[in-house]
Write a protein that binds this DNA or RNA. Structure first.
Lengths: 210, 210
DNA sequence: CTAGTAACGCACCGTTTAGTTACTTTTAAG
DNA sequence: CTTAAAAGTAACTAAACGGTGCGTTACTAG
């Protein structure tokens, strides 16, 4: 349906170029460190366009953040974990979360920035709350099925488990620079990454199985 | 020995006032967001003094960061865990780490800032590496004693365990703002904090015990 | 074809920024 | 008391900074 017409003016394309450039700059330097001029240049757009489409630097940050969260939430749903037995489903979610963080390093720094600013830019986002509820329900369902089939113990809070799954991957990756200095290891070496993933799977499995 | 002379000019006092103000501002707004003028004002000092004592904004950040890390590493050593049986020692370390994060929220945001800048401000800090080595040795010793007495399983990497202990507390607290929005919970309520600490102790104990 | 509108870009504004210069005041040793 | 170094201040600068005013160009409905 969509015509591949080579436009010289294309609002949607310009908007998404701005969004991509903003994501990269906000992730690299934080909200305070990113420069609107730099975003405009990287987007091959004009600064005026940023203000035209997004209103302000902070509003642009808001959109970037919400998109980043919705991206991972949608990708999680694409796993279709309800088709898998509980243990496999949980391990698949763990591996996915780890790989997503590795493939999308901007996500982690964007979330850090959002929290440095006390979550102010995400307040009242209905879309995000809906997407998050779906994730919690998905994990709760895995837990329930595991309890029913006798492989998982009862009484585990799905939210706490979700937080823990994210934590053990996220922390390792976000603090890999200071970690490398403190622990005198290369955190990003292939062997180190594999070892960490295995450790994390072990941690979670020991936590949930009977 | 130290004379309690009421000085109107006191280099050490001024320096530590600057350091305290800088720590607070860097933690609150990040390296890019913090303002040198604001730090000077909060320290009841002059901006010139900051440049006199610390050279540049980045060098000031460097000192703040190193001090923050050395503080927690010293506090950990004060626990004297080698006097405790392995299970108690590990639980004490866990509770301490959790409480330290709660009592020193600046620590977490400073570490986040350090990693946003790829650890560049901590490079080549011998003091920090020494302090970190002591921590790893301490945990390794707890693990060894636990294996010997038959309560812990063998083959657990002390560094991975250290990272995991930090991760499950750190992530919960640093991402409490976006967490509150996503999961529609108050992360800082007394009951929620207690529940999380209990969950974390459970996670680690299941990970290390046979 | 033509007008109206959406997309775009230049050049600038007022403010803020890290860092500096030139100067004064306090301290303490001899 | 003298004096020189250390501690402290205010006013300044040059270069960003986020944000805008206003004019121009391409697209499209009629």
């Amino acid at each position: 349906m969509a015509k591949p017409k080579p436009r010289t003016r294309d609002a949607d394309a310009t908007k998404s170029r701005i969004l991509a450039a903003a994501k990269s700059e906000f992730a690299r330097l934080g909200l305070g460190g990113a420069r609107v001029d730099e975003i405009a240049e990287k987007a091959r757009a004009n600064k005026r366009m940023i203000y035209h489409y997004f209103g302000s630097k902070e509003d642009l940050f808001r959109v970037v953040l919400e998109e980043a969260y919705l991206d991972i939430r949608n990708a999680e749903q694409g796993l279709e974990l309800d088709h898998l037995p509980p243990v496999e489903a949980l391990e698949t979610l763990l591996r996915f979360t780890w790989q997503y963080y590795l493939d999308n390093p901007e996500f982690i720094t964007l979330v850090n920035s959002a929290n440095l600013h006390r979550g102010r830019h995400l307040e009242g986002s209905e879309r995000l709350q809906m997407a998050s509820r779906r994730l919690v329900r998905m994990v709760q369902d895995i837990l329930d099925r595991g309890v029913e089939s006798g492989v998982f113990r009862a009484g585990i809070d799905a939210v706490q488990l979700n937080i823990t799954i994210a934590a053990i991957g996220y922390y390792y990756l976000t603090n890999r620079f200071t970690g490398a200095i403190l622990f005198e290891r290369d955190f990003m070496e292939d062997a180190a990454l594999q070892q960490r993933l295995a450790f994390n799977i072990d941690t979670i499995m020991r936590l949930v199985t009977v």
